[in-house]
Structure formats: structure tokens, C-alpha cells
Design a protein around this nucleic acid. Structure first.
Lengths: 209, 209
DNA sequence: TTCTTATCGATATATATTTACCGAATGGAG
DNA sequence: CTCCATTCGGTAAATATATATCGATAAGAA
């Protein structure tokens, strides 16, 4: 009955939503039906007001004195985060990190499924890692185009990252999860999410002096 | 000759500094002596003003028309990020992710060295992963205390995270790099850096719709 | 030397994000 | 039924962060 503009949700909020989801799921498992911002805030370590504002952005509505219905709020968050639009993804780079990512159990929960991995190393090609087959990178374009894959994961060193991004983009990918330290140049309609471990480590080290 | 207050550097800035470091190192390798904000900005995709303000916070000073001396600016950033105060770290959880982390080449650059890994799985104990030995977790406290280790890395599932954090804290650790989805409760003097992959993935998925 | 251009640094503005405040609604106790 | 405590939602204030403006400075060309 309204909503001409979906209104983009801020990144800080987006990053907190999965935390709330965690808490709500745990509270649900414990048999609860409602959860208040006060309660959620205490477990995640934020202020209640922040939790309330964040939840508000997902469309969740609460009842005074009671809080939010856990079931519906979980759905609201899931919808906001896009967990229900299942996405298939490909992984490029079947080294240590790529391997670890394939074994990571949390992706399914987010609605993402890695359906193929790619590498250039002949020792890796043909292997099956956690149910995912490793193909030669030459097969990437064809497969991604044919299956309309929307997400590409780059688990490669700096020097190979940009050319791989170009490849993924040319195959029609819409989002890239970048584990390299490279700053990827991509068209505006492609989203890049950087996950440079050095960055995060640097922040930690600079804080502990 | 002054500096009564060190003035904390904002987190957004801290996260951008490693990028500048990358660029500067590459420019240096290419034989350059100076780099301007304009140039750096173009390669990392930010605005020149932002680069200038960030660099300013590290104490770097530039010359009009020329830019910043690459060598000294690299040092400024390294000092700010604490790369020169070498820290030793321990890793808890020698599974897929832990294994990948041990094989990650970027840590040394940040001044961090993982000197031991811990697990409870007898199949893993005694193994040597990338030069790091895996011990039983019972040995953690003693080793961390004795060697005054300051950083602990948690590469474990949710359910084991908090008790491991407690263990690390009791052993005197000052910073925890947390790869689990748990919100760790730690004393104020301990810094936690969260690296929940689901969070980052969620942000990406919500952006590509 | 003088002019032009690129760039810095300082100050100011704009935007984003977090936090505070307060009235209204709800459920439960007395 | 009335009162009290809790929590929500909306608005407002405070803080943090990003961007703009502008004069000054340095290097190189004319």
C-alpha cells in the first residue's frame, strides 16, 4: 500500500542484522515466542535503541511491554538480507582459503550455495572438495553464463585477482566476494565485498598497541 | 616534541590504511619516490581528500605539487598500525579455517607470527601445519602465560567460542581475532576483532538483491 | 623571472550514524 | 478498575565521518 522507494539500509545496520538473527534463533530454540530489544541488546552488546532502530528498518514491529514476535522478526531479517532469494555461487582459487570456504557450514544459512570451483593448477582440477568439483578456469565463463550464476568468490593472491574479476564480470556475475588484497575495478552494477584479512588484523593490532 | 594525547584513529581510517600501504609498496617497487593523494586515491577508489586526511592522521606530511615521500609514509602507516611491535599469536581450532589461516602469507607483513596452534581433536594434535605445531588445548594457558603471548585467534564454531575466549583471557591475552559468529564477552582491557564470514556475505547478498 | 598547474593543509560544510528523550501502548499487580 | 513498570515508536540532539572550499606552496614551463 506504499513503498515507492525501498530505501537502502545502511551498511552498519546490515552488519548487525545477522547478529540479531543468531540471537533470535537461539531464543526461539530455548522456547521463547517474544524478544525485547533490551534483551537482544544485552546479548549482542549494543544499546537497546540501536537494536530497535535496526529492526525497524527490516519492517519488524514490536509490541510495547512485550517486544517482537521472534518468528516474524526472523523472517523480516531474512528477507532484508536476501536469505530467501537463493543464490548460486562459484569459487575461484582452490587453495587453502578456498578449501576452507568450501567447508564453511554457514553459507547455506545465508541462502548461498557454491556449485563449482575453479583453478589453474592441474593437481587440483577434477578434485571434489566438500561436494564441489574443481574445474579448469577456462570452463568458468561457459558455466557461469549458462547457469546464470550471480556470485563469484575470489580466493586468490593479489596478482590474479583483477583478471579473475574481469572474467567473472564478463560472464555476467553481479556480486564478488573478494578475499584478496586487491582493489577490484568493476562496473557500477557489480557489487564487491572485500574480505581482506590483513585489514581486519591491522585494526586489531593497532588497538592492542 | 609534543603529543600529550595520542588521539585515537577512527576505525574507518584504520581500515583504509592497509590499502594505502599496498599501493605505496607497489609504487615503490615501480621505482617511484613520491606519491600524491590524487594518485593513491585513483588506485584505491577513494577521493583524494579522504586519502590526505587519513595520511595526515598517521603523521605523514606532504609537499605541494609533489605529494608524499613514499618511504617515510610507509613507515608512518606501519607505525600507526603497529606493524613494528611484533606480536606473537596462538591459534585455537586447527580445522579447515585454522589451517587456511596458518597458510596465509600476509600475517608476517603485519608483524604477527603464530607460534602455536591448539585443538582438542587427537587426530590433529602433534601435527605440523605450515611450520606450526598443534598442541592439546590443555597446554594453552601455560604456554601463553610463559611466553606472554598477546593475541589469540579463535577459529572454532559458535558453541566453543566463548569458553575459549575465557581461556585466552585468563591466560593474559590482550587481543582476540574471532572467526566465530559468537559475540564474545571479555573484560574491557581485551580487544575483540570479529571476522564473521556470514556477516560479510550477508551484506553482499543483500546488496545484489 | 613570471606564469601556470598540481597539490597540500586548514577550515568549513554536509551527510551519516549513533544516542537521547518522551509520549503512548500494553500487560500484570494490587 | 487503577496503578505501575516495561517497552515501543517517533522526533530530536549529539557525535562521527565524509566531502567541499580556498589560500599557500612548490615545481616546471614560458
Amino acid at each position: 500500500m506504499n513503498n515507492t522507494t525501498p530505501i537502502a539500509i545502511s551498511e552498519p545496520t546490515l552488519k548487525r542484522l545477522p547478529k540479531y538473527l543468531n540471537v533470535l534463533e537461539r531464543l526461539k530454540e530455548a522456547g521463547n515466542k517474544y524478544a525485547s530489544c533490551t534483551e537482544i541488546a544485552k546479548t549482542v552488546g549494543f544499546l537497546p535503541i540501536q537494536v530497535r532502530k535496526d529492526l525497524h528498518q527490516t519492517g519488524a514491529v514490536g509490541k510495547p511491554k512485550v517486544g517482537y514476535t521472534i518468528d516474524s522478526t526472523i523472517k523480516n531479517i531474512e528477507n532484508t538480507l536476501g536469505y530467501n532469494n537463493k543464490s548460486e555461487a562459484v569459487l575461484v582459487g582452490a587453495g587453502n582459503l578456498g578449501n576452507a570456504l568450501l567447508g564453511f557450514p554457514g553459507f547455506e544459512r545465508c541462502g548461498m550455495k557454491v556449485i563449482a570451483a575453479f583453478d589453474t593448477d592441474n593437481n587440483k582440477i577434477g578434485k571434489n572438495l566438500y561436494g564441489v568439483t574443481v574445474f579448469h578456469i577456462d570452463k568458468l565463463i561457459n558455466l557461469v553464463e549458462r547457469l546464470h550464476i550471480k556470485v563469484g568468490i575470489i580466493a586468490l593472491p593479489y596478482k590474479d585477482a583483477q583478471k579473475t574479476a574481469d572474467l567473472l564480470v564478463s560472464a555476467g556475475i553481479k556480486g564478488i566476494w573478494n578475499f584478496s588484497s586487491a582493489t577490484l575495478k568493476v562496473p557500477d552494477n557489480v557489487t564487491v565485498q572485500n574480505e581482506d584479512l590483513s585489514v581486519s588484523l591491522s585494526v586489531l593490532l593497532s588497538k592492542i598497541r
